[in-house]
Simulated assay, not measured.
Amino acid sequence: MDRVAKLHDDEVEIDTSLVERLVAAQFPQWAGLAVRVVRASGTDNVTFRLGDELSVRLPRTESTQGQVEKDLIWMPRLAPHLPLPIPEPLELGRPGEGYPFSWGVYRWLPGEPLDVEKVDAVAVAGQLAEFVRYLRDVDPTGAPVPSGDPFERGTPLTPRDEMFREALDELREYFDVGRVLASWEESLAADTFEGPARWIHGDLMSGNVMVADGKLSAIIDFGTARAADPAGDVMPAWWLFHGDSRNAYRQALSVDENTWLRARGWALSLTMIAIPYYRDRNPDAISGGQEYVADLLSD
């Protein structure tokens, strides 16, 4: 039985046995299909393969539930306008078998998470930028919008300032505080977005950017998708790319200087604020954060 390791203190127990019971009880047409956990599952949801053609996604916590409902509305509307496959939700599962949240059955999308060391990174940067451009061009009428939560992507940096400085102070023995603050304050000075809001994915990290045969094959996990500041999808310049591929991504999106600085500030703040939370759970949080911040500040 595959039991999923917990990433959050308030996370529910999830394992293959639970998924088998949920599927058998609610979707008997798929009962008996092999269930196996996807080891690259994200921090908000756990994904399982269901047979060869399906997948099951279950929220880890109460605060991350509701994604399937959102996907059922928006994925069919976005998909026809995009150059790559995106999640295709098939069924909405109900709470049951001791599991308290709604969950979903999806079409399985083949591919592996992006590893820029194994592909032509400049070419992939261009492919991802093309996807972002197409997504931005979709009519945002009625789209989800930021709620005011300072952790929502595509929102202003200023509400994160206090959290950022507290985290940096806690981590001052590991970072060049003056240099980090100089970069952060440069981004704060560019923290003005006058619209119009555009569709953003908001979480184009390697686990959500799928690759097959050296090319992008799909984009998954639209949990942070909304109409917001396009800087939210400039962040992959630092999350995924380096050097020539970073420049290629910026040029393909025609990113102006203020948008570039806002995106860099978001990438920096996400890292600095997250390290204190994850360092007790992940022994590599400090060293990984140091390497990432050094690369970001070198830009």
Score class of each variant (00 low, 15 high):
D2I: 00
R3Q: 10
R3M: 12
K6S: 13
L7Y: 07
H8G: 04
E13A: 15
E13H: 10
V19M: 03
L22D: 13
V23H: 11
F27K: 05
R36H: 12
R36C: 12
V37T: 04
T43I: 12
F48L: 08
D52G: 15
E53C: 15
L54Q: 12
V56W: 00
P59D: 06
P59C: 11
P59R: 07
E69G: 11
K70S: 13
L72I: 15
I73K: 02
H81K: 11
H81P: 02
P83M: 15
L84I: 14
I86T: 11
P87N: 08
P89A: 14
L90T: 08
P95S: 11
G96V: 12
E97D: 14
F101E: 05
W103M: 03
W103T: 01
G104L: 09
V105F: 00
G111F: 08
L114Y: 04
V116D: 06
V116P: 02
K118Y: 00
V119W: 09
V119Q: 08
A121D: 13
A121Q: 07
Q127D: 11
V132S: 04
R133Q: 10
D137V: 05
A143L: 09
P146Y: 07
D149A: 10
D161P: 04
M163W: 09
M163R: 15
E166A: 13
A167T: 06
L171S: 09
Y174L: 09
G178S: 13
R179P: 07
S183K: 04
W184Y: 09
W184G: 04
S187I: 02
S187Y: 05
A189K: 11
G195I: 08
P196Q: 06
R198V: 12
G207C: 04
V211P: 06
A212H: 07
K215E: 14
K215L: 04
A218N: 01
I219K: 02
G223P: 12
A227P: 06
A227G: 03
M235H: 00
P236Y: 00
A237R: 04
W238M: 10
N247T: 14
A263L: 10
A267G: 11
Y277F: 11
D280F: 14
A285P: 06
I286R: 13
G289Y: 01
G289R: 03
